[in-house]
Nucleic acid binder design. Structure first.
Length: 347
DNA sequence: AAACCGCTCAACCGCGCTTTA
DNA sequence: TTAAAGCGCGGTTGAGCGGTT
């Protein structure tokens, strides 16, 4: 007997969420906090599956989410984190607290994978005009994520393969980024022409001044989402201290100034972000995947305590990536040994 | 102007894994 | 120990949009 569905399929609404539904969901979470999703449809009257509610919250309604154009820096972070971690989108998203794993996955699939493929194939014409390229092929073989789940490779094989993959990815990445640096316009830069009106923005601007997408167009629903965001903002301002992010902008455009997750920075984050490069200085090197330790670290931090996860020090990753073979920076061997010998630390 | 086509992305599904009671 | 609940992810779908013909 298999696992029962998270909800019965009868009478469950599917499809895009309406602003009214968003408000209902947000109001409920405002009162009860996220979690116990199974009870959400029951208690709110939403004709939605509990999983759908959770996804809607985590991907779109949760405070601190930035939507819309990815900055060059975010793009580069995604690229080299993907090279490091494979398609572990949640892990990657933990370094970009304003972005959701779904958002990053979509961005990777629709933009970055294509760009990297073109770069690696020696084609430098990476203008991302939608009509200059054929539809993305679903090339599943290029995933670097270990597929131990599906193919049952052993941990040893997994690690060797990961190490090989990492080396390959690092080479490719160095090439890509050197191309990027050598050109006046970033090779990997976000092509705003491809993003157009489909970019949804919660009414917040990115504080990256290098990002020239100062004007976003927004769809009707984006503005609806913006309304929800404003509703949340108001709620945050009047909420008890434990729930109130100590920032005037809960949607966190100033993530690098207030990090790790603006709007969530009241959660005693283990890392600080560098304002400009976005790197993370390690405040607490020793974190554990142990649930108890995580819980201990986030005790009494409010209703969003499940939304911050400790992440490995990105500065180390960056140093390792960019300085590999050039300068043996402090911590590189550490990182390699950590990542390959102590999975509990990195993963 | 309309049909067609390709792209984007929100949303869904299914599955395996982990956590919790 | 077990089942339920939740999480993370890969894969996919389809509406909406914009460019091309």
């Amino acid at each position: 007997m298999g696992r029962p569905p998270c909800c019965d399929k009868i009478g469950v609404k599917k499809g895009p969420w309406t602003p009214e539904e968003d408000i209902i969901l947000v109001s409920y979470i405002q009162e009860h906090g996220p979690g116990n999703w199974r009870s959400v449809p029951t208690n709110t009257g939403l004709m939605r599956c509990s999983k759908s509610c959770r996804l809607r919250w985590t991907n779109y309604l949760r405070p601190g989410i930035k939507r819309g154009n990815f900055t060059d820096h975010e793009e580069k972070m995604i690229i080299h984190l993907q090279a490091l971690l494979g398609n572990r989108w949640a892990a990657i998203a933990s370094y970009l607290p304003q972005r959701t794993d779904n958002d990053i996955k979509n961005y990777w699939n629709t933009h970055l994978r294509k760009k990297l493929r073109m770069i690696q194939s020696g084609c430098h014409d990476v203008n991302d005009h939608p009509h200059h390229h054929h539809r993305l092929h679903r090339d599943h073989n290029e995933n670097t994520r270990p597929k131990s789940r599906s193919n049952g490779i052993s941990k040893g094989q997994w690690e060797r393969r990961l190490q090989t993959d990492i080396q390959t990815a690092k080479r490719a990445l160095r090439e890509a980024l050197s191309l990027d640096k050598s050109s006046s316009g970033s090779v990997l830069s976000t092509d705003s022409s491809t993003r157009g009106s489909s970019d949804h923005d919660l009414g917040n601007n990115n504080n990256n001044n290098n990002n020239n997408n100062s004007q976003y167009s927004s769809s009707a629903y984006a503005s609806s989402t913006g309304n929800i965001a404003r509703l949340l903002e108001g709620w945050m301002k009047k909420s008890p201290t434990s729930l109130v992010p100590k920032t005037e902008n809960v949607h966190g455009n100033d993530m690098f100034a207030r990090c790790p997750s603006s709007g969530l920075d009241h959660q005693y984050p283990p890392f600080e972000y560098n304002n400009h490069c976005g790197s993370i200085s390690d405040r607490s090197r020793s974190h554990s995947r142990s649930g108890q330790e995580d819980r201990d670290a986030t005790v009494n931090v409010g209703i969003f305590q499940d939304e911050i996860k400790p992440v490995p020090p990105l500065a180390m990753l960056e140093n390792w990536l960019f300085e590999d073979g050039l300068v043996v920076g402090q911590g590189q061997e550490d990182l390699i040994s950590v990542s390959l010998d102590d999975n509990s630390t990195l993963f």
